[in-house]
Nucleic acid binder design. Structure first.
Lengths: 225, 225
DNA sequence: GGCTATCAGGTTGCATGACAAGTTGTCCCT
DNA sequence: AGGGACAACTTGTCATGCAACCTGATAGCC
């Protein structure tokens, strides 16, 4: 009779999960340098090979990054989701955004709470005041996530936030274009107004117009100002 | 003269991305055994250490699994993302599905190629013939992914496939309910017919009806047969 | 024949040692 | 004080060896 293998992990897998735990718990903070492979080898009482295999795993997950001669550094506390890794055409990304965020605006209009409105309003105020383009991009992203949050469906903000980070990674963020800020602020206001009045159709329309303007700006940044 | 400074990536990173590409492209199919570390070492012209580090990375991403004495096997074609990990209400999951897949059906109707139609038709034939419920669930999933693929936007199949795997994980798959199979097959036919005729509105409507029926079945499985 | 035990070959898991190449701090010389 | 050589440490890669494990073939026994 066979005994059930109690998920007997290999040494490398064990070290990997330990390292991940240390990073996620914050014991190894972001930016911090990890102990050298030799030190880890001593601590975990395994060979350097095993340590390296584990480190490569953690690195593949996006948590750390190693530099020859310097060491290994913590890059992120949590593994960024890899759902949308890869190269995609901006057109495709925008299409997903449209498909998702337009109906979301309608749902948000139907379900938003007073708290949601407050959050969104505050974000728009900050958006108008902010001069730094890269910070403005972040606020813009937060606004769209706030709309998704207002749908009361926890999956939506995750999807929107994920999409947004992909867009940002590919530097397809309209809020960074100088002259766009004012216009974008107005479009945001229109969306918020419709959501505030529980006007689902209006919110969807406003969002549709907004995203079209964004895509237009981004795909031909030289033509606009 | 240097051969090629493969970006600034290390050999292990290079091998890793190559392996990932081979798996995602389907050249190494799911379930298939990878070449042994020694063989890979020869193919990539690097030491076995490098191969092992890359292999551990790929394994950490959830794409492969290694067994001592047997070999390394492909576990999944794409890295299961952690985007949607956690527990969500079936209601929320279905809502995301509706939001996404209904407009997708319309897009698919507009853009599907003849190849897409062939793929989908073949899947539906298999769906009707298949008796094993768990296999039927898989075919059903493939059909929905095929629709997403027909949109010619590579992000959609990934999203749909991801959503589907979450649903399946939570055992919220209608195709497993016995009496549903025939009805589901008819609904599928209606969707395919609309897509085939490039009837975007019809496809969206058919998909909406289908998903509503699915949700209804799943949320009250005792009431139906 | 049919069954079992053994074994050979292949595979991954792990350890050790060595060296190259990059980085950084230190010490010495000017 | 400034600059340069150097030593020490780091990661990157390679080579080798061996243990543990799995599979299929083979030999031997009943």
């Amino acid at each position: 009779m066979k005994v059930i293998p109690v998920a007997q992990r290999t040494a490398a897998e064990h070290v990997r999960s330990q390292l991940i735990e240390l990073i996620e718990s914050g014991e190894f903070a972001v930016g911090q340098r990890l102990p050298s492979e030799a030190e880890l080898s001593k601590s975990f009482e395994v060979s350097r090979s095993v340590i390296r295999e584990a480190l490569h795993s953690v690195s593949a997950l996006g948590l750390t990054r190693s530099y020859a001669g310097k060491g290994t550094f913590v890059d992120a506390q949590f593994a960024p989701s890899q759902l949308l890794t890869g190269k995609y055409l901006p057109r495709d990304l925008h299409e997903v955004r449209r498909t998702l965020e337009v109906p979301l605006a309608a749902l948000a209009a139907e379900r938003r709470s007073r708290t949601d409105l407050k959050t969104m309003t505050a974000l728009l105020v900050r958006f108008r005041e902010e001069q730094n383009p890269s910070i403005r991009v972040g606020i813009d992203a937060d606004f769209h996530v706030a709309i998704a949050t207002a749908t009361a469906n926890p999956l939506f903000p995750r999807l929107v936030s994920e999409l947004r980070s992909v867009l940002q990674e590919q530097a397809i963020a309209a809020a960074a274009v100088p002259g766009r800020a004012v216009q974008a602020a107005d479009e945001h206001d229109a969306i918020l107004a419709a959501i505030s009045q529980r006007d689902a159709n209006g919110a969807a329309n406003a969002m549709k117009l907004h995203l079209a303007a964004v895509e237009d700006t981004v795909s031909a940044p030289g033509r606009r100002k």
